[in-house]
Amino acid sequence: MNDFKVKVKDLSLRYGTNSALKNISMDIPEKKVTAFIGPSGCGKSTFLRTLNRMNDLIDNVTIDGEVYIDNINIYDKNIDVVNLRKKVGMIFQKSNPFAKSVYDNIAFGPRINGISQKSRLDEIVEFSLKQAAIWDEVKDRLFNSALSLSGGQQQRICIARTLAVNPEIILMDEPASALDPISTGKIEELIHELKKQYTIIIVTHNMQQAARTSDFTAFFYMGDLVEMNRTEVIFSNPGKKQTEDYISGRFG
């Protein structure tokens, strides 16, 4: 039980009066890839964003229940959300590098943590870019604008940027949905590498992607967690009819 990195208990969320998540409970294991699947609008992104309290930014959101990360309830009054987000990084569906150079993008996190020594920043930038498997592609363009890179490269810059903060958990919201198959392949490879060190949670619409990359899969439907299990089990022998319908594509 204690090797679960994230434990969610009875989590409900409403946007105004609109219920988007209903009594979700789940445990997410450490240093594994967990995939969230489900039809559009079922609350995958919403749920993902509760894990680093990104929903705090939206007006009118009510959240009940508990989310434990390393056995600390992140919805406690005393939680330092800023530090929480350093520990729980996030990659967005649309790559969102800053309109700065590649170098400044990666150095953003270390800098806000007070690292200003050039040699250390260089080191972290190189290390993070290598970790994100994009160093070779950008090492000669470190001081060009990140926006001049291709979409796939931008997304890996965003991953490198997150890695530079040294998170323990990385949340990815459809990180490859806007990319071509080759870039998608690179991201999937990268996820495979990263799970040796990080707990990864990924939202995806692509069944094959979930099957290829994840160890565990959770199926959401209309704000409910329908079922969660080892990925092989979900894809070969799902426990619920709804899940089966969805993964076999018989479903909206």
Partner: peptide, 20 residues
């Protein structure tokens, strides 16, 4: 998205304003 990127990296609100 820019603000979210910054906040998700653990920047505080003021850091986000000042740097992004």
């Amino acid at each position: 998205e820019m603000r979210e990127a910054s906040l998700a990296l653990g920047a505080t609100k003021w850091q986000t304003i000042r740097r992004v």
